[in-house]
Design a protein around this nucleic acid. Structure first.
Lengths: 194, 194, 194, 194
DNA sequence: GATGAATGAGGCTTCATTCAT
DNA sequence: AATGAATGAAGCCTCATTCAT
């Protein structure tokens, strides 16, 4: 029991150390030896938990994505209207990025790297279904604009990236409710059906 | 004269080879030796033109950005209304990305915030200023929504990036005028003042 | 314990191999790969023990110097008169050079002023102080000529270097007690006060 | 005529540039490209005058040695006594080193480098005969100590290096006639027969 | 499970030298 | 004679990975 929890500890420490360094320096500028050191773990231990560096990166990506998805969708199902659902999703996402910039930046970095192509399509789009469902529902109801689901997904996804990007550059607005509200309204108006 | 053009040739060949490989494999997975080989040039020749690999990457980025900006803004000044200006900018940008996917993907890879760069501050302002000016003009006229210029810049930038991303995944729509028109209208409605 | 001694072994083997090759071919004509090969060690192992080639060279120099100093001064403190002290120092030094030509030549190669080094100022003083002390004592006693300590240090240092150089070229005299004795007397007469 | 003198110029410029850089940085840290640049000459031109870098180094050594010998022995033949001959030789040598530190340091560096072994024995000892003759004459006359010629050559050679070394470190004595005189007397006493 | 010394392939870069002009 | 672009061998060093303990 005790040794098991210790083991978990080490795996976790490696993952967290890796994320910290990846965000700071990128994948290739972060040797596995540096990760081991940051995690206060022996060099070989890293390869005990992850067969290769690539596996470590992929694991980190999947776990981060999963944690993101859990946070982003928390409570969304309980909301009654599409707008309320979308609003919650939007706020959850923005807050997640602001609270865990490391995670956000790691995912952004990973998405633009050659590693992405190594994940199966299934793994990549594991959570996309949820979003597509919401969009489809909104279109059926007549609440959302009638444009192709996938395109809308791209558009709203990138738009929210834009907001987050802006808030990273202007931290003074991160806790400004009026401001966030305005940004959301802009977002909403761009996708709602008039 | 003749020798000069030959020299240009080699430099050019190296730059193009580098872009090709960087897009396929990423910066770090592309050894300089591979670039030289792809350019049919001796290993050392690469370092004759670019002191380091980093200098090669930066040069490539700057030249690509510059060429992008030239293409994106072509003819925009001659348009009379804001909407026409924005439309031309939008189409120019989309066409640039579709015609030169290598360039687009290279820039996307270079910086995670793809239209935000590591250029000299001066160079950054030079390009961004054009966009900010357009947004400010639109707001003054009452044509564009009254939200902070920088935020709007981020939003429309990322939104167009979403469109392009979508078109890469769905090449069948790349030459579909109706489709592009619809995408632009969506774009426009999201930023215009009602 | 056992593994520790093995580790020492490899480090030692690298140092000795390096010295052997440096003496034969000079620093720059000796690639690290050749050192590794000569030490029967993998290329990377060398860099496990010494971060850079330069660090290897410096370490080698410091260790050689230290070992030289220990040998050269062995027993000197126990001698009663200045002349006996100087004689022992002289013989120790000459024997050291003849027994370990590699070490001598390495040091000679390392710095053109062979007994003047690039060590920490502290390390330099540590060694030189011993000599200066001896010279000062001899001058106070009236045994040594009254010329500036530093100058005398240079002169006797280089003179002994000359003897060694000669003995390398004429190995037949290396074990000739009469000859060595004569050389020492020449040395001594040149510094003693008449 | 004119073009010829220009050519001489270039060869000279290369040699001087090389010496300047060699003294500052050593042979191996001085690329031929740097020499060409320092000499304001095209890269390939250097190889017009010297087939290889090695040939350049050797040429430089020979010319420097030759120039040294000319200066060191100037007027020596006209002196009547051995002591006066030796004194002039001593002063000439010290002055040469102080006036042309570049030359002195270059020769010192070369002597301790692997390049030395590449010169024929004949080239090395070209000028040694002069010194040996002087020593032999002194011994025959009964002016100099009766120790082997070659050994004495080594001893006095290295001793003078010691003086020069000291004067480099203490420039304040370089023009102090009393001081120089004292140093010479020390030198002389160490080799003269009492 | 944990360690860290050891490995060696491979990356970036330097540089003496060549050669077409 | 002079140039300097071009070459490619070779050097130093990094780093993912293995393996004996």
């Amino acid at each position: 029991m005790i040794s098991q929890s210790k083991i978990e500890d080490k795996r976790e420490r490696i993952l967290r150390a890796a994320r910290r360094l990846f965000v700071k320096q990128g994948f290739h500028s972060t040797p596995t030896s540096a990760i081991a050191k940051e995690a206060s773990v022996a060099n070989g231990t890293l390869f005990h938990y992850f067969k290769t560096k690539e596996e470590l990166i992929n694991t980190l990506y999947k776990e981060t994505k999963k944690s993101f998805f859990t946070i982003a969708t928390a409570g969304v199902k309980n909301e009654k209207t599409i707008k309320r659902k979308v609003r919650l999703l939007w706020y959850n996402t923005v807050k997640w990025a602001l609270n865990r910039p490391q995670d956000f930046l790691f995912i952004q970095q990973f998405s633009n790297s050659p590693f992405l192509s190594q994940l199966t399509q299934e793994e990549i789009s594991e959570h996309i279904g949820f979003y597509y469902g919401l969009i489809d529902q909104g279109k059926e109801e007549g609440t959302l604009k009638d444009i192709p689901t996938e395109l809308m997904y791209q558009l709203i996804t990138f738009q929210i990236y834009g907001v987050i990007n802006y808030l990273f550059q202007h931290p003074e607005f991160q806790n400004n409710a009026t401001y966030l509200s305005m940004a959301f309204e802009f977002y909403w108006e761009s996708i709602m059906k008039k």
